[in-house]
């Protein structure tokens, strides 16, 4: 692995609400190279919070502390709002779960992608348009010229998510954070979106942080997996080794999945051990 793009050492995120403090992320450390890194966990495990804290997309009530949070030559921890604005979208992009809520409903999708490009590059309108059409082609949209002029409500979910990807990738970022990018999609289009994302990540040598709750998807799609439980990383392993996972939580999650090929009368239920909260 080359030098890591992102290096995080004991990241802690606390949400402070009056006297109540919620410790959402506890001592999370990882580094990301040019690879596909998955963060998996159940709802409330803090997986999305980790992704967001890299971009500092948190409300003022969040306290982020870490020993180190390095992105290339930038210290994310010390970076001010202005420095972050330069990074967001240009060097680190984020893809959200549902394209419906991430696209502006009254602006043509092509214009929105062009806007994202122009925000970070000096170029004329027509140049930007050319770039957008090229990008739409790259995400396997068949008739880019027609799609350019569509409004978000006129595109399907799968196409919307590919448009989001085009918008996020057009600035040539070094890292993409994808937060459950396919969980709102049907299986038949999920495949397509994932392969488009993969192609771009490989072609442009990006690092991908893939936040998901879906162990099966992650094990085939990503290179490395961080398993989170209650704010901690309980296990970190290569995706292909997932079936040899050692932590009882990971094993429990895998066993609890109903499967077509392995029909059981009862699914084993995950027994949560309070010890997992402290180790």
């Amino acid at each position: 692995m080359s030098t890591p793009k992102i290096h995080v050492d004991s990241l802690n995120v606390r949400f402070v609400n009056g006297k109540k403090v919620m410790h959402a992320v506890r001592d999370v450390s990882f580094s990301l190279g040019q690879e596909k890194l998955a963060i998996v966990g159940e709802s409330g495990s803090g997986k999305s919070t980790v992704g967001r804290s890299l971009l500092k997309l948190h409300p003022a009530s969040a306290q982020i502390t870490a020993k180190a949070m390095q992105f290339g030559d930038v210290d994310l921890l010390g970076a001010g709002e202005r420095a972050m604005q330069k990074i967001r979208g240009q060097r680190i992009s984020m893809i959200m779960q549902d394209p419906k809520y991430s696209l502006n409903p009254v602006v043509k999708v092509g214009e929105q992608i062009a806007e994202a490009y122009l925000a970070h590059h000096k170029a004329s309108r027509s140049e930007a348009r050319e770039r957008v059409l090229l990008m739409l082609e790259k995400v396997h949209i068949r008739d880019p010229k027609r799609v350019y002029n569509l409004y978000p409500h006129e595109v399907s979910g799968g196409m919307g998510q590919r448009i989001m990807i085009a918008m996020m990738v057009i600035t040539n970022p070094e890292v993409i954070i994808a937060d459950e990018p396919t969980s709102a999609l049907d299986v038949s289009v999920r495949q397509q979106v994932l392969s488009v994302l993969e192609e771009l990540v490989v072609e442009q040598q990006m690092g991908l942080i893939f936040v998901s709750h879906d162990l099966n998807l992650v094990r085939n799609y990503c290179d490395r997996v961080l398993v989170m439980y209650a704010g901690r990383v309980v296990e970190s392993l290569a995706a292909c080794d997932l079936q040899y996972a050692e932590h009882p939580y990971t094993r429990g999650l895998l066993a609890a999945l109903p499967s077509m090929d392995n029909r059981r009368a009862r699914l084993p239920v995950l027994q949560r051990d309070p010890l997992w909260l402290t180790c």
Binding site: V187, S188, N220, Y221, S259, M260, D261
Partner: peptide
């Protein structure tokens, strides 16, 4: 068959190499 295939692609029994 497509649905089965799509869910198999991400299912437990397929080894990594297949993809």
């Amino acid at each position: 068959r497509m649905l089965v295939q799509a869910s198999r692609d991400f299912s437990a029994e397929t080894p990594m190499a297949a993809r």
